[in-house]
Each structure stands twice: as structure tokens, then as C-alpha cells.
């Protein structure tokens, strides 16, 4: 067994520097690496490029890094719900590259799986395909999209073991598995870190080979963005 455990978040993010490119898992605030983000905020590193589907909200998630002007560039598919983000984007302080969501996921997966690029129909004929190579297959047009290159991937899973094997919960899975092994160093934080052998190999979502470092997060706030419920009497 190859051990991937590190003692804490400080050890987990060792090596992060100004100007690096990071992948961060999560959809909205669901399944985001809360502990790694908090540590990046504390370290105060600057000029970072973040590959993340969303940019958090004003006071949580990647919004915390935005508040401190640590992000130079965001690569995302949807960035609503964040006033500070909008302000920085419109004033030109923040560079933004909007990418279709499926393309974003596949650019991560391609990096993980060793594909330099792939063709997708998404964005053909729109400003997303401007300046990109396009090609026809069976009468339909496709856009060539390169794999991402990143220094660190920060992902969040539900359970993990010392070997770096991961299991995700619900829709907190989202981009997290696609980012594992897609950067030079993959840091996984989990709610519950278990000894090797505790997880059934049949149930593993991401094998430890894609994970460089694993640690148990100190706490998880798991904030809900849109709390929607129905009343009991509506049954």
C-alpha cells in the first residue's frame, strides 16, 4: 500500500506559489474543498488562475479568495450570484474565461486521462469557438479544445482511505473526480479518513493512483445556496 496521508491542510498545500494554476472541485458551494480554500486565503498567495465551474458567493467558497484579490484569472462556466466577482470582472481587475460546462469537465478529464485535446460540438458557431480549430465529422461541426494544464487540483470527497481512494456523496461528486490526477499534484480532502482496508474496493469512485495527498478536513460548513423545501401538508 502506498500511503498518501498528510497530517493537515498546511502539509497538503505545501508547494503552492504565486502565479500557479489550480483546479478546484465543486458545483456552486456543493462539494467544494473548503479547508484547502481557507488555507490558500490564509497563505495570501497571489496571481492565481482558478479552474472551477463557479466562483463561489461573496463570502464563501472562491469568493473568499476573490475578496482578497488573490485570483488573477477564473476559468468557469457560470459565475452568477457573486457581486464582487462581477465588479472585478467589469472593472478589468479579473480575467475571465467562460467555458461550456461539459467542455470544462472534459478538459479536466482529458488532462487526467492523457488526451492532449478533443473535439466537441459545444460552442460551435459562438464566440467560444472564435480562433479555435474546427472540423466536420459526419456532417456536423466540432471545436478542438485542449486539455487543461494545472499545478494543483484541490478536490473534496466524502470518505477516503490512507491509500488515497475516494468515495463521493450525492451531487457533491460533480467536477471532483474529473480533476483527480488532472494536475501535477492532486490534494484530496475528505470528511472521514479511514485506514486502508476499511473501504470496499468495489465501492471506490476514484482510485488512489490519481491522488497525491489526502487529509481529513478539520470542519465542513457545507453551506446551502438555494434552500428549497416543501411543506409537509403538500403531500
Amino acid at each position: 500500500m502506498i500511503r498518501k496521508t498528510v497530517a493537515n491542510v498546511q502539509e497538503a498545500v505545501d508547494g503552492v506559489k504565486d502565479g500557479m494554476t489550480f483546479m478546484l472541485g465543486g458545483f456552486g458551494l456543493c462539494g467544494i474543498p473548503e479547508n484547502a480554500i481557507a488555507e490558500l486565503v490564509r497563505l495570501g498567495i497571489k496571481d492565481i488562475t482558478c479552474i472551477s465551474n463557479n466562483a463561489g458567493v461573496d463570502d464563501f467558497g472562491l469568493g473568499l479568495l476573490l475578496q482578497k484579490h488573490q485570483i488573477k484569472k477564473m476559468i468557469s462556466s457560470y459565475v452568477g450570484e457573486n457581486e464582487e466577482f462581477e465588479r472585478q470582472m467589469l472593472s478589468g481587475e479579473l480575467e475571465v474565461e467562460l467555458t461550456p460546462q461539459g467542455t470544462l469537465a472534459e478538459k479536466c478529464r482529458a488532462a487526467q486521462a492523457g488526451f492532449p485535446a478533443f473535439y466537441t460540438p459545444a460552442g460551435y458557431g459562438t464566440e467560444v469557438s472564435e480562433g479555435k480549430e474546427t472540423r466536420e465529422f459526419d456532417g456536423k461541426m466540432y471545436v478542438l479544445e485542449p486539455a487543461f494544464k494545472a499545478d494543483f487540483a484541490f478536490v473534496k470527497a466524502w470518505k477516503g482511505d490512507e491509500a488515497g481512494n475516494l468515495i463521493f456523496k450525492g451531487t457533491a461528486r460533480n467536477f471532483n473526480p474529473c480533476m483527480c490526477g488532472a494536475a501535477t499534484i492532486t490534494v484530496a480532502e475528505v470528511e472521514e479518513l479511514l485506514p486502508a482496508g476499511s473501504l470496499d474496493p468495489n465501492e471506490i469512485h476514484i482510485p488512489g493512483i490519481f491522488v497525491s495527498r489526502i487529509f481529513q478536513g478539520e470542519k465542513y460548513e457545507k453551506r446551502i445556496e438555494q434552500r428549497t423545501v416543501r411543506k409537509l401538508e403538500s403531500m
Binding site: F27, K169, N174, Q226
Partner: peptide, 29 residues
């Protein structure tokens, strides 16, 4: 139902949801 929301189970509108029998979860790719 009120009180049964799970932060880990949302839809693309980021609203809390439930799943029905036969449901499945998967990654973005």
C-alpha cells in the same frame, strides 16, 4: 420536506432536491 434538506444533494439551479427510486449520481464528465 423542511428539515430534510441535504447540502450534498442539489440540482443545477443549486436548489436542494430529493431523489426517487432508481436514481443515480455521477460526475460532471
Amino acid at each position: 420536506f423542511e428539515g430534510e434538506e441535504d447540502a450534498d444533494i442539489i440540482n443545477a439551479g443549486k436548489q436542494t432536491i430529493t431523489t426517487l427510486p432508481g436514481a443515480s449520481f455521477f460526475d460532471s464528465a
